[in-house]
Simulated assay, not measured.
Amino acid sequence: MTAVAREALNAAEAAVPGTMREIAFVQALKDWLGGFPTRATQRLEAVLMQHPRDALAMKLVQAIHFLMGRPKEMRKSVENILPHWDGHVAQGYVLGCHAFTLEETGEYARAELQGRKGVELAPQDAWGLHAVAHVYDMTARSADGLQWLRGREASWMHCNNFRYHVWWHQALMHLDLQQFDEALALYDRDVRADKTDDYRDISNAASLLSRLELEGVNVGDRWDELADLSEKRATDGSLAFADLHYLLSLCGGERFESASRLIARMAAAKSEICESQRIIAHPGLRMAVGVQAFARGEYANAWFNLRDARADLQQIGGSHVQRDVFQRICIEAAIRGGYLDAARGMIEERSTVRGKTWDGYAERRLALLARAQAQAV
Rank of each mutant, 00 (worst) to 15 (best):
A234E: 13
E215W: 03
V166C: 04
D228I: 00
N305M: 12
V191K: 09
V135T: 15
P283E: 10
A8R: 13
H169Q: 01
R371Q: 08
A133I: 15
V78R: 13
W127F: 12
S276K: 12
I335Y: 12
T196D: 01
A293Y: 15
Y108C: 12
D86W: 08
C97M: 14
C330Y: 07
D341L: 09
M173S: 03
W156H: 02
H88V: 07
R365H: 05
D221S: 06
V132H: 08
Q170T: 05
N160G: 10
K270D: 01
P123Y: 15
D137T: 11
P71F: 11
R328C: 03
E13A: 03
D201V: 06
Y339W: 09
R344A: 06
C251N: 02
I335F: 13
A293C: 09
S207V: 03
G237Q: 00
R278Y: 06
V353W: 02
R53S: 11
R70S: 11
G337Y: 09
R152Q: 03
G297P: 07
W223C: 05
D359C: 10
Q292I: 05
D198G: 09
L9S: 02
V26K: 09
T357E: 00
Q178W: 00
Q62E: 14
R310C: 11
H134Y: 12
L9T: 08
M157S: 05
L212P: 05
Q114R: 11
H169R: 05
R75V: 13
N301S: 15
R110N: 13
A8P: 12
S271F: 02
E182R: 09
R211M: 07
A206G: 01
I331Q: 00
A15C: 04
R150V: 04
D190G: 01
G337R: 07
Y299D: 08
L67H: 15
G92Y: 10
D176C: 04
A11I: 04
K356D: 14
R39S: 12
G318E: 02
R296C: 07
D243H: 15
A206E: 02
E275K: 02
Y339L: 15
V47D: 07
G360Y: 06
H158D: 06
D243T: 14
R296F: 05
T19K: 03
S210P: 06
A370M: 01
T235G: 04
D144V: 13
R192H: 03
R296N: 07
S249V: 06
G252E: 05
T41E: 13
E231S: 13
L186H: 09
H98C: 14
Q322D: 00
L239T: 13
W167V: 08
V47Q: 05
N80G: 10
W127A: 10
L313S: 04
D308S: 10
V217E: 08
A3W: 10
G317P: 03
I335N: 10
I279W: 06
L102V: 02
T357H: 02
K356W: 09
D197Q: 11
K30V: 02
Y339E: 11
